[in-house]
Amino acid sequence: MTTNRPTGFRNPWFQFVLNIIGVVVYELLLKAGASATSDPEKGWSGFGITALTSPLTWLAIGVIVIDLIIWLYILRYIPLSIAFPLSRVVDVLVPISCWLILKEAISPLRWGGIALVIVGLVIVAKPAAQLEERL
């Protein structure tokens, strides 16, 4: 293990956790902002741009900018082929959070999907752990 390994707050894996929390927050804010400004009568006109009229969208943009800086920092230390698949842990966290907090029902098929993602994450975690030893 080299001596220049970032520790504490600068540890890339700690930053990775912060990044995941940021993704969950901005995905929900973006959807809320886009839905609040959606006008089915307008069809495809004003595509995307009209969502910028929502304060929720701008709040999401603020979170995205912070998250982007964190993500760039992570990419300085972790290969994209490992960091990106691992970042999809959000696809497990969002439905489980909805189930625990919002008491939303999860179908057996969705539990199956969550299980697949978890197994995939565990498998990808081994190369990530080997990388940690090299950091």
Binding site: I82, D91, I114, L121
Partner: peptide, 17 residues
């Protein structure tokens, strides 16, 4: 190992949605 893990994650994401 990384390829298998990534394929499982992608399949799981699709199934969840």
């Amino acid at each position: 190992r990384l390829i298998i893990g990534t394929l499982l994650i992608a399949a799981g994401v699709a199934l969840v949605s």
